[in-house]
């Protein structure tokens, strides 16, 4: 499912830990936030994650939304820190980390959409998706975690 020539997404441990914690804390609701970092020719490296409020009115167990003001702040933060706004993360409580039709509806090109699957308040899986050039479907990005040794620690705290 991975697109040829796509970059490998590296999740550094600090943002990965933060996103996992946020996804667990907000369970059974969906969490969301922005990811920042930089790119090389072959890799996209996430160095910072910043949680934002899920502003979806209604069922936050199944939907998330980020307010335009939080989006504008995210762009301003990236410019201020000389980083690239590389994507959005959110959680799928009690569901797999598979991008859904709802994720696809408003997906933008370029962004990585990282999804944490949270099952019974524990992280079960993480996957990342990016919109294909045709704008009609996602492809799965290869994700490399630098956190592996600390995952169990987080889930038990």
């Amino acid at each position: 499912m991975t697109e040829q020539n796509s970059k490998i997404l590296i999740l550094e441990s600090e943002p990965d830990i933060l996103m996992r914690k946020h996804s667990i804390e907000d369970f059974p609701n969906e969490s969301c936030g922005f990811m920042y970092g930089y790119e090389t020719e072959t890799e996209r490296i996430i160095t910072i994650a910043r949680p934002v409020i899920n502003s979806k009115e209604g069922d936050q167990k199944r939907r998330f939304e980020i307010s335009p003001f939080d989006y504008m702040k995210a762009e301003a933060f990236a410019l201020q820190k000389n980083l690239t706004l590389l994507g959005v993360y959110h959680s799928h409580p009690q569901h797999p980390a598979i991008a859904s039709v709802h994720d696809l509806k408003s997906a933008m090109p370029f962004f990585s959409y990282v999804i944490y699957s949270v099952m019974n308040a524990k992280i079960d899986d993480v996957k990342s998706w990016q919109l294909k050039d045709n704008g009609e479907e996602f492809y799965e990005e290869e994700v490399r975690l630098t956190i592996l040794n600390t995952v169990n620690k987080i889930q038990t705290t």
Partner: peptide
Amino acid sequence: VSIVPAIAGGVQALYEQIKK
């Protein structure tokens, strides 16, 4: 002037996923 894309999404009901 800021151009702001909508950022939203969410889980797909499992029966929808299985159908897909």
